[in-house]
Design a protein around this nucleic acid. Sequence first.
DNA 1: TAGACGATAGCCT
DNA 2: GGCTATCGTCTAA
Length: 187
Amino acid sequence: MIMTAPIDHSSFFSRAATEVARELIGCALLVDGVGGRIVETEAYAGDDPASHSFRGPTARNAAMFGAPAHAYVYRSYGIHWCLNFVCLPGSAVLIRALEPLAGLEVMAERRGTGNPRALCSGPGRLTQALAVDVSLDGAALSRPPFHLEAGSRPADIAVGPRIGITKAADVPWRFGLAGSPFLSRRM
DNA sequence: TAGACGATAGCCT
DNA sequence: GGCTATCGTCTAA
């Protein structure tokens, strides 16, 4: 088990995505008891051309315009799922990488690799390891299967530009635990 | 209704 | 380090 304190979901997520993204680093995320410590996030704002919410609500991004502290799950490149936490309406934080701590065996089986660094180091890998898919789109983060806990005060947080986008690519809204070997890429 | 493209991962060189 | 598979979603006609 991970020794951390509970968090107040509603107030924690009712803020700007950039702020939440930074503070999520070091927090523990478990889905059905499987997960670890968040080491990499990206913020997506409502007036952000790179955000799915930029062109307004659609069937796909509806969760982004719902209440804060809920999950927004979408399929990327027609292949894998990406997990986001909704903040203020129209904004969200993409969870990009975890340091695996709980349920290593389950994750290894789902991922088909025993290499701890390859289990959750990337948005698609993370959702596969935690068995996150569209059935959790819109689910409350305060209820099972989700479990979030505040971590110890973030150590060194590295900041950089977001990955894999073409619009607003220069905005430094990617946050990571400096020096962690579990990042999807070096900062 | 068709066409274009994307918040990637994994394999190959 | 570079290339490609693969398909849901959006946009335009």
